[in-house]
Every structure is written in structure tokens, then in C-alpha cells.
Design a protein around this nucleic acid. Structure first.
Lengths: 139, 139
DNA sequence: CTATTTGCAAACCCTTTGCAAAAAT
DNA sequence: ATTTTTGCAAAGGGTTTGCAAATAG
């Protein structure tokens, strides 16, 4: 677990209780929706405002701490950025699991980046499953 | 170019002028947004309603003719499904280009499908580019 | 003739914004 | 003391829905 206060200092962001708990909650959950986040945060601080969560996410996104993943349904999901990885997305429920790149994928990516002069940010694999290991439900 | 009337007959959908032009327009453009579609369709038939386009897209989606791609910004993009392929997405503008899978990717996908007992529907690669070959602009 | 589809307007949901009060540095 | 952040409520933007009239088969 990263040091939230330290991280905020590095990014020159004020360490408000709201911001601290947003970051901590992001570290706890994997790829929560805004609703997931807000509900959890309100439980620990009932005066937490939805707008505050959105604003904090926006700020953290600008600083490169958080990335947004927008797949499967109309809802954004949020992810603390660490290293390049793949998102495996359940088409049924939108749940997301992180997968590390394997060697062949790294090679494919490097090749594509060079050929097109681009920088690959992420790779999302959208899949359907009979019994979803991501959300533990049938679809 | 596919035979639109024939396709609709196969899918047991009524061949209304609106539906026909939605399908034709989808064949003309690559990954249009709803706005792209609606604006083009209104030009050829000014009484075309936005709701009708949405409803047709929903119907065609159910029948497996059209898939939605939801990346980069809050806007859906639509794609007539043909064969498995990769979407290369420009992080700057959301433009999408189709790329065919190469052999190593097919292998990776097959391996992942077997290991996890899933069916991969598509793969989206989100990339940033200095000069976007997709939208022909700098980001 | 029957079932589907259209077009309009209203509703919906998620996200963003403006602003004055509160808090961080 | 200055600048950022909060919380509220209102606005925004894309998408969906209810319903009566029109149309396809």
C-alpha cells in the first residue's frame, strides 16, 4: 500500500481528509465505479459529497495518479495507475480484472508502437463468460 | 458491402427506410458516434428522429449485427460486426481504427480463453500519439 | 389486420459546474 | 493570508422511454 500523504505531497495536492479517503478507498477496491466509491466513502464520512469525489478523481487523473476505464456499460471505473497491464473486462457486468502482460504481448505492443509511432497506454480485453470469475455470477 | 435488405430479412427485422439507411450509413463510416450517424441520416431524411436511430442501434445490437465501443470519452461508437479484430483507439480524440489480429495475438487470445474459460469478444488498445494518424490532428 | 416501428417530448442517469463557506498550507 | 477544496444545488450531455400515429409484412 502506497503512502497516501507522501503521494499527495509529491503531487503538490492538499491533503484533505476527503482526498485521503478517496485515495485509500481506491487502493482497497479494484476498479470501483463512482457509485461504489461514493457509497463506501459516505459510510465512513456521511457529509462526503458526490461532487467532491468527482473533483478529486479529476485532480488525481490530471496528476497521473488515477486512470479511468470506460468499458462495457455507461459507467466509468477508476484505477490507481501502477504499471502497464491489461484489463480483462466481463461483458456481462463490466467487472474488471488486471492481468500482467506476458512476453509475447510485450513484443506485440512494442512492435505496434514502433510501427505506428504511438505510445500504448492500456489494453482492454472484453470477454463473455458463462460463469464470471470476475463478478462471481452467471451471465 | 453487405446486402442490407437480405441482412434484415435474415434477422427477421422489418425493412423500414430508416433502418435501411442506418445500416447503410454504418457501412459507410468507420466507428461513428451517434451524432455522426444522426447528422448524416438527417441530411438524407430530415424527418429522421434521434430516438429512431437509438432504437435501431439497440435492435441491431440485440441481433448481433452491431457492436458498441465505449472508450476514451463519454461517447459510444458503433461498428458493424464482421470478424474478430482489434480496435486501436486514439486517447486524444477517441478515433478508432480496426487492426487485424496477427498470429501471436491469436495465440495469446486462444491461450487466455482456454485458461479462463472465457470467449474474447474484442480487444481495445488505447494509445496516445503525437500526431494522430486516426484523426489527423496533434494532441 | 397485426405487430412493429416511428417521432416527439419528457424522463433518466451520470457527470460537470458555479458559488459561497470552510479548510489547508 | 492566500489558495485550494468542499458541499450544495443547478445545469449539462448522452441515452432511454412512453405513447399515439404511421407503416411493414
Amino acid at each position: 500500500m502506497y503512502d497516501v500523504i507522501q503521494l499527495l505531497k509529491e503531487k503538490e495536492l492538499k491533503a484533505t481528509p476527503q482526498r485521503i479517503s478517496v485515495l485509500k478507498e481506491l487502493g482497497r477496491k479494484t476498479h470501483p465505479t463512482m457509485d461504489d466509491l461514493y457509497e463506501a466513502l459516505k459510510r465512513e464520512n456521511p457529509s462526503m459529497s458526490l461532487a467532491t469525489v468527482y473533483k478529486n478523481i479529476a485532480t488525481l487523473k490530471e496528476k497521473g495518479v488515477v486512470i479511468e476505464v470506460n468499458v462495457a456499460d455507461g459507467k466509468m471505473r477508476y484505477d490507481v495507475y501502477s504499471r502497464p497491464h491489461i484489463h480483462l473486462v466481463c461483458q456481462g457486468c463490466g467487472a474488471i480484472e488486471d492481468i500482467d502482460c506476458d512476453e509475447s504481448l510485450y513484443q506485440y505492443q512494442a512492435c505496434l508502437e514502433e510501427k505506428r509511432n504511438i505510445k500504448i497506454e492500456r489494453m482492454d480485453i472484453i470477454a463473455s463468460v458463462e460463469f464470471c470469475s470476475l463478478c462471481q455470477k452467471e451471465h
